[in-house]
Design a protein around this nucleic acid. Structure first.
Lengths: 351, 351
DNA sequence: CTGAAAGCGCTAACAC
DNA sequence: GTGTTAGCGCTTTCAG
């Protein structure tokens, strides 16, 4: 062995291993069987002699051996991959959500495959299909479809599933569900506005997706406004541009008369639009109107004297979803599949 | 067949396929060989009779067959997965970068495995290892290490590689490299500040990573400032909090004397810190000092009367990296491996 | 304490 | 036009 006649460049730093090294070669070079190597790799060192272990370890280093995930998963039927589908990755919400998941999944040695459904039901179906073909161990979805029927393939494949952020009708109890406290937060907000003397609430929304978290918010606001005798207008921005929004706001101001008006934006990106429209109109908050927005991080704090916010906690949503999913994968279903993550009211100077 | 005596629930919507369906079963049920099914699946319908095609398609639907990516990749030695490693996913930059990559990769039917290196060299090494075990078809990395030696395993595995955003010493020309025009943009900015009458530049940086894009920016600013005879201070925030920054800024103001001072923040997150510190001090821009920041999206536009920005285009960086990488995977190396994506100067009212 | 060998689901020669 | 069959690299009984 030490007088190996064949030229090899194992010593070269930039070694160019043409052929992929397999467990078989490791076994051969180490002078043991593949079984033993496999056992070593999986920490299954029942009563393996220390000498053997060291030998194997040495050979693995020398040969630069790297186990093939595909072959492994084929036998063990577990990929240690979690599939994640979000509505729109360019959104800050999605990126924080992902951060949260990652923090729980990575330490447990799970990898994440991240797909974007573009808030589109068909695209989402394809994403699901792709991930099922990858045989992912679990799936976390910010759903773009409203009815659970569309997710049957996942259930049939026996793949643990968690929904985050949005609501899906007829979701079976075996599916994990993690959202913000949309309803409660909206109700409290309405009561606060009324307490502050606002008599007219203008909701700015954009319900591009039927499953949007904006829906329960609108419900809560509607009910609470009715109960408290507040006037309510809903501006759905779908399609409209900033100028359209500016017009709408101006019209509303006119009709408000003596009533104090508060504009409520239902998500971070909408706040930007409201600010742009207000700038066109020369509106100032809270001088001319009150302003409050749902949001995902605190940039609004630095706008003007600070915008009043209801802050979601996407990172926690992601973390909890990841934890619950891992529990399911381990066949230890969590006690409660309905997880609600509280939002936080950040006071500003726009009310 | 129509009088199948065995009870099955193929008609049930929520069918519970216990066993995984393989290509073999499809073949059997369709009354053809596995080869034929495989050919059908891969669109390799040389002279396959239309009848056979339809039959197979039908059976695939009926059985709810889903090809196994692992088995496929094992034979074909290609996973159609691209590994992506970023420094910090919670960063807006990373999320836009990812968006850009995704837009080129997804239509070409590549999936993305996204890992976070936490701006840490060791963590990054593990990420690389993991992705190589997954046998990814290509790798896009926002590098956390400064020397190319550390990336040899990737080269040895013959995996196409692209670096984005940051610089790695001694990178071979076979590796793609996509960055902003950091140097040029910084030089132009200095000249602009001088032209506007600023005599003192205060750079706020945080060089947590040795490979940071902030380095070339600092270089360019240093050189240009010297050439133009501007005074220059560099505040490295590493470790310091907002109060520390406030103190530093106050001290600098004192020493500035009659010189007009401009604060230059080298990345978006730092701008937040500068704003927080200024608020503590009661500083206003541009009344007391000028302010300009590098950033990744235009939120600064809405702060005060609008912050002067140098906007990066992370989405384009990601897109270009994805395109070049795909070209390499197809053995069509792009003409130029050094891709520079221009930044954009967004005028504000803080200078 | 270790090994031999079957087989996971698929592709691609090579046959006919 | 379609079928047979040998592996891809690994885990895991079952046997010593």
């Amino acid at each position: 062995m030490s007088s190996d006649p064949i030229r090899h460049d194992r010593h070269t730093k930039a070694m160019n291993s043409r052929k992929t090294i397999t467990i078989k070669e490791v076994a051969k070079v180490a002078g043991v069987s593949v079984t033993t190597v496999s056992r070593y790799l999986n920490g299954n060192l029942g009563k393996m002699s220390v000498a053997t272990q060291q030998k194997i370890q040495q050979v693995i280093r020398d040969l630069n051996y790297r186990p093939s995930a595909a072959a492994k998963s084929m036998r063990s039927d577990s990929t240690h991959i979690i599939g994640v589908i979000v509505g729109d990755i360019s959104n800050v919400f999605a990126s924080m959500l992902f951060t949260g998941m990652y923090k729980t999944l990575q330490p447990r040695n799970y990898s994440v495959m991240l797909l974007n459904a573009d808030n589109d039901a068909d695209a989402e179906r394809e994403c699901v299909e792709k991930l099922l073909q990858q045989n992912v161990d679990g799936l976390i979805i910010q759903p773009s479809r409203g009815n659970f029927e569309d997710y049957y393939p996942i259930v049939n494949a026996h793949t643990p599933l968690a929904f985050v952020d949005r609501y899906v009708d007829a979701t079976p109890s075996s599916v994990i569900h993690v959202t913000s406290d949309n309803y409660e937060a909206s109700r409290r907000m309405c009561e606060e506005l009324a307490g502050k003397g606002y008599r007219h609430i203008v909701v700015v929304s954009t319900t591009t997706v039927g499953t949007s978290a904006q829906i329960p918010r609108i419900h809560a606001i509607t009910e609470t406004a009715r109960r408290l005798g507040l006037r309510l207008s809903v501006l759905d921005l779908a399609g409209g541009d900033d100028a359209w929004l500016a017009d709408a706001l101006r019209a509303i101001r006119t009709t408000s008369g003596e009533d104090r008006t508060a504009v409520v934006s239902l998500m971070g990106p909408l706040l930007l639009r409201v600010l742009a429209a207000s700038r066109m109109l020369g509106l100032e908050f809270p001088r001319d109107m009150g302003l409050l927005s749902f949001d995902d991080w605190e940039w609004g704090e630095y706008v003007g004297q600070g915008i009043d916010l209801i802050l979601q906690d996407p990172e926690t949503i992601g973390r909890r979803a990841g934890e619950a999913l891992l529990a399911m994968i381990r066949k230890q279903p969590p006690d409660d599949n309905e997880i609600v993550v509280p939002t936080k009211r950040i006071p500003g100077r726009s009310l």
